[in-house]
Simulated assay, not measured.
Amino acid sequence: MYPDTPTRPTVFPADPPPSLTDPRVIADHDWAAFSAVTMMVNHWDRTGRSSGRRRLYWFITAEQAPDVHSLAERCQRQLSRPELDHTAADGLHITISRVSAASEDMLATVAAAARARCAELDPFILQVLPLAGSRGAVRFSLAPWGPLLQLHSTLTDVGTAAGVATAKPTSGFRPHLGIAYCNRPVPAEPIQRAITDLRRLEPAELPVSGVKLVELRREDHRYRWTTLEEIRLGGVSDGARDKR
């Protein structure tokens, strides 16, 4: 979520999968990358956390996806380990991109442009695939990537036009949905082994009908956020604000 330390590349896996549509290829690619990790790191021990800095993100959330909640909870029950901080059901999210700090006027411009552009994008359904992980988290792979890459590119273009930068180009976007964060450096092999059986579970579906601009904060070892704008795909924003 936040920038990695200079000793760690910020994109994981380093390369995208050879297919952006085939669920099996995407899942196998993510698993191969995670299987090559030898040490997990503390997800919470990251740079770029000055206390007065706003952290703004585009998120897809999972409130309307009970099957995803059930799948995550089932996996979390089997991953009850002291080195893993589980993500609560109301904290499940897909990070699309981080947005640089901006004035309220700039954010209003970004939201209005995003509303217009996203009205041209169709809602879509993601498969929440078998578990894998990264250096600091346990997470589900997602398929297909195409609609997510299109959404990332659209929001990047909107921000660029308004003078509001995003953290990574679309070429560096690696879609995933995290269910647990590592809270200390530990060998990866025991976590990889614990995940193996869970990878046999059937995937869940996540309907995506919109994206949220949120202000993110960390409370202990949990992410919470306030929704600033909710943008509907193929429609208009209702302007709702909520808190997580």
Rank of each mutant, 00 (worst) to 15 (best):
R174W: 13
D45V: 03
R98A: 11
R55N: 00
L129G: 03
L149H: 06
A88K: 15
R139C: 08
A167Q: 08
P130L: 04
Q127T: 10
I26K: 01
G235W: 02
A113I: 08
L216G: 05
I60M: 12
D242R: 00
F12V: 09
S51E: 07
G91W: 13
Q127D: 12
V25P: 01
E120C: 08
Q64S: 06
G210L: 09
G234K: 05
E189L: 14
M39H: 14
K168G: 06
M1T: 13
V158G: 00
H43D: 02
E205A: 08
A137R: 02
A132D: 15
S97D: 12
I125A: 11
P130T: 01
Q64C: 07
T38Y: 09
S51Y: 05
E215Y: 05
T196P: 02
P123H: 00
C75H: 08
E202G: 02
S100V: 04
P175I: 14
A132K: 10
T156E: 00
L149T: 01
L131S: 04
E104V: 03
A167R: 00
H93Y: 01
P185T: 07
T7I: 05
V164R: 05
N42I: 06
R199L: 10
Q76E: 15
A33R: 15
E219F: 01
V110T: 06
E73C: 09
R74M: 12
Y223K: 02
R53E: 00
T109Y: 07
S237A: 15
L126N: 12
P185G: 00
A27R: 01
H93T: 09
S19P: 06
A194I: 04
A33S: 15
F59P: 13
G163F: 00
G48D: 03
L213F: 01
L92T: 08
R139T: 10
S103N: 06
T196C: 02
S153V: 03
D30A: 14
A143T: 05
T154G: 00
E120V: 09
S19M: 07
T87D: 14
L131A: 07
M106Q: 13
R53C: 04
L213T: 02
L216H: 08
T87R: 15
C118N: 08
A180I: 13
L129S: 00
I179M: 07
G178I: 11
E73W: 01
G178E: 11
D157P: 01
A114N: 04
P13W: 14
R54T: 03
A65Y: 04
A165P: 02
L151N: 06
W58N: 11
K212Q: 11
P66Y: 04
T109K: 08
A88W: 12
T61M: 05
E202Q: 05
H152E: 06
W225T: 02
P207E: 09
T61F: 04
L71M: 15
L20N: 06
W58I: 13
R184K: 03
R49I: 03
R46V: 00
L198K: 11
R55M: 00
L121E: 00
P82H: 12
L71I: 14
A89I: 15
A114E: 03
G91Y: 12
Q150K: 06
V236W: 15
A36M: 10
V214E: 06
V164N: 07
A114M: 04
R224S: 12
V110G: 10
T227C: 09
A137M: 10
S80G: 12
T7Q: 11
V68E: 14
F59C: 12
P18C: 12
G234R: 07
A137Y: 08
